[in-house]
Design a protein around this nucleic acid. Structure first.
Lengths: 213, 213
DNA sequence: AAAAAATATGAGTAATACTCACATTTGCAA
DNA sequence: TTGCAAATGTGAGTATTACTCATATTTTTT
């Protein structure tokens, strides 16, 4: 009997459940809480984000915050889920129509650029995904997300190389994708120029692998 | 006037300095603290490691712990530094004599296997390097370490391809190395069989890049 | 209008990293 | 040996912060 699309859905996988907002008023307040958290993360990073500060900036009491988010991770998680959904749509669109090697090369190359741009531009993404490793549960979300994204790649590969071992194609796509995320994280934590070079090197490497054989 | 080789050297880069142990007695106690921390991390992970528990298990007071380690990160850091030094020696030895493409292929392949084995076997390494991202300062140490390791690769590449652009070779080596670490982290957080496949895929991908052209 | 459900509140609790004033031990020169 | 300074050891106490809960208010339902 629970609304699966509620903004708290992700939390239920980990922490004790909280009521999903059902009234207009509370839905708006939850939005304010997320906006406040997002701003604070952008300013100081998720580690330094204080729950009391989130509540204050959202103009709600600390109790209200915990009414909808069972713990601190849940807020970060909820934000992560939004970006996740967004980027997944983008990937799906970019790779859907690919039917030959040349098309894959173009689409993949463009996809990397878009992703890199996202990483560079959005401080919240940077912070969340670079702090991810510390939080086992969030890491699982990231892995699941990465797997889902990689599947778009796998689908293309299977179309291009129908005779190859499917498990090997899975591994290749998953690895290429994960290494892409690793490369981005690396790139944004060094000087811009070096970062660009690293992303370019990754792109070359990944394409060589994807288009091989 | 300070002993640079003291086990607290790493801390000085970040937190307020602490006295380095100069007497036999305190050196032994510091060892016990590190051993206790290592055991606790192996058992529960560094996040769940409590400073009070470290002190208790080492048989010292909480005050003594803080006499030599300015904060919790410093203990983890000190442990990380040890493994870092160890693995660096191993890499240097493996790559030092390489002078042709075939030799690079063999040495690199073996190196990956050794590293993967280390990751699999040593819970403290797993925990520290997978939690790394959360701690900005530790991440810097990891990057510096990675750069140093990559330089052994760069040296080999420059020998093999003297006419290539040095900056590009740097980027390639750095990226290949970082992606290797990312691949290992990924591999140990999934089922063993899939992990093995991922490492194999990485090896193939990296070798193709290293031996290209 | 009354009852029930949802939402709002913030003082209070609990957990834990870290401090500090003081006690003890060690190294060393007189 | 003795005296003294530096190094080391101690643990009760402080500070911070995530999180709870009894209670009050608002909205929805009957």
């Amino acid at each position: 009997m629970e609304d699966a699309a509620a903004p708290v859905s992700a939390q239920e996988q980990v922490a004790s459940p909280r009521r999903a907002p059902s009234q207009q008023r509370s839905r708006e307040r939850v939005e304010r809480m997320l906006a406040a958290a997002s701003a604070l993360i952008a300013e100081q990073g998720s580690d330094a984000m204080r729950m009391g500060e989130v509540a204050e900036r959202a103009g709600v009491s600390i109790g209200s915050l915990y009414q909808f988010f069972p713990d601190k991770r849940a807020i970060i998680w909820a934000l992560a889920e939004r970006y996740t959904a967004e980027s997944q749509a983008c990937i799906s669109a970019a790779l859907a129509g690919v039917s030959d090697a040349e098309g894959l090369g173009l689409a993949f190359s463009e996809l990397v650029d878009i992703y890199y741009g996202l990483f560079l531009a959005e401080p919240v993404i940077r912070d969340i995904w670079s702090g991810t490793q510390a939080d086992k549960a969030l890491r699982q979300l990231e892995l699941a997300d990465s797997r889902a994204n990689a599947e778009f790649l796998t689908a293309v590969l299977k179309r291009l190389r129908p005779d190859a071992d499917p498990a090997a194609l899975d591994a290749t796509a998953f690895l290429v994708w994960q290494m892409g995320e690793a490369a981005m994280r690396l790139a944004i934590s060094v000087e811009r120029q070096e970062g660009d070079r690293l992303v370019a090197a990754y792109k070359r490497m990944a394409l060589r692998e994807l288009l091989a054989e």
